[in-house]
Design a protein around this nucleic acid. Sequence first.
DNA 1: AAAAATTTAAAACAAACGTTTAAAGCTGTC
DNA 2: GACAGCTTTAAACGTTTGTTTTAAATTTTT
Lengths: 229, 229
Amino acid sequence: MTTDKKNTKEKILEAAGEVFAQKGYAGATVREICDLAGANVASVNYYYGGKEGLYKDLCHHLFAEVFDQFPVTKDFPEGTGPEERLAFFVEGMLNRLLEHVQEGGLPKKSQLLARELAAPTKVMDSLVETFVRPTAGQALDLIRRILGPNVPEKEAAKCLLSMVGQCVYYSLARPIFSRLELLDLNQPGIVQELAEHITRFSLGGMAAVRREAEGDTVSGAGGGREGMA
Amino acid sequence: MTTDKKNTKEKILEAAGEVFAQKGYAGATVREICDLAGANVASVNYYYGGKEGLYKDLCHHLFAEVFDQFPVTKDFPEGTGPEERLAFFVEGMLNRLLEHVQEGGLPKKSQLLARELAAPTKVMDSLVETFVRPTAGQALDLIRRILGPNVPEKEAAKCLLSMVGQCVYYSLARPIFSRLELLDLNQPGIVQELAEHITRFSLGGMAAVRREAEGDTVSGAGGGREGMA
DNA sequence: AAAAATTTAAAACAAACGTTTAAAGCTGTC
DNA sequence: GACAGCTTTAAACGTTTGTTTTAAATTTTT
């Protein structure tokens, strides 16, 4: 009963993570996955019904894992302000995207996410509904509270995208800024450092959006909501 | 001498743009490209030395086109502040990434960029050196001027990534937020609207970073540098 | 221990891949 | 018109792809 050696099914899933992340869906081959798993070529069809089924199972497995591991909300004390909650959200989000940096593994989830963004498969639909939509809703609530009642809904959505965009970009654009030598993601504590930056940057950005919505005229006296974090 | 009908070579490049963007490098087939171009299967090898050569030529061709079409700097009047220059930069950058939205074509460049990010090929190196590095340098200069002398270089780099990250995200993450119905990129004037948002958001974010670097103590009196856009 | 169900294994499948080949078509110059 | 130099064509090349098949091995149940 699987005491020492793992299931063939699990070994295939693990190997698929490596190969799909590295080669993409089209680029990966069933043979390479099975070789890496030490299993026969026919195993993929036997356990997952084919290459496509394996890919879908893998995606859901990986995302469920990392979403479980890093929450973006928690039970704060009653009076906790939205700024502090946002900081926690950003750090959780960034951890989900950059988990591999600290754990020292291959960036499987980020790679698969990047590939799904570049070429959405059928998996994208279920991923968005299962994982992204709830998270986005939580973030939008926070953002609305920070922006106040005078900022239109559309502006709040743009702020959400601006904030999430930063998080995702640090994960996605690594091939670019590693070549530019702008930032070394491999130094210790980098994820928390980035989380702090993104939180500060985004709070500043949202303060500017709020000032704009509430009219520039009263900007002299501090706008009413920064400097109190 | 190519009066009406185009060169076979050019027709192949055009068809390659469609197919590579839609299917990716591994997913695209030489046969499909040639069929779409109305050319023989052997043409790709004849003109471009193979699938790989065609892909490289295509990438450079497309990026050169869009970088030419949308500059991110221009000759401003002498006294123009960095904020206004940044607004121009952001709009140019966003136009490069979302050009297809206004022109109503397929997002070939964005797709290819997304795919290169997800799985960098040899092309990524030359793309970064030819197109990205100069642009990043220009942006970093602007950002340094906005942040002032007290902000460390590393913080400036993070601000650059935060700003560029927003621009890229609006282009890259379309498969996600179109499913979330957060933002409709197809409405007229959306690119300029987003450019204004990103500029405002980023200036606010950088103001916050600057305040942090110059010490939070003097934050009460407005920080000294926003509200004058 | 025998029987049944599950899992692994090797081999073969047709289809599709990028590329090559060799011949035919074309265009311009002498 | 004949020759040379590009260009285009159809066919075939050897690989590699995902999947299927058939049988042996293993595990579970009786």
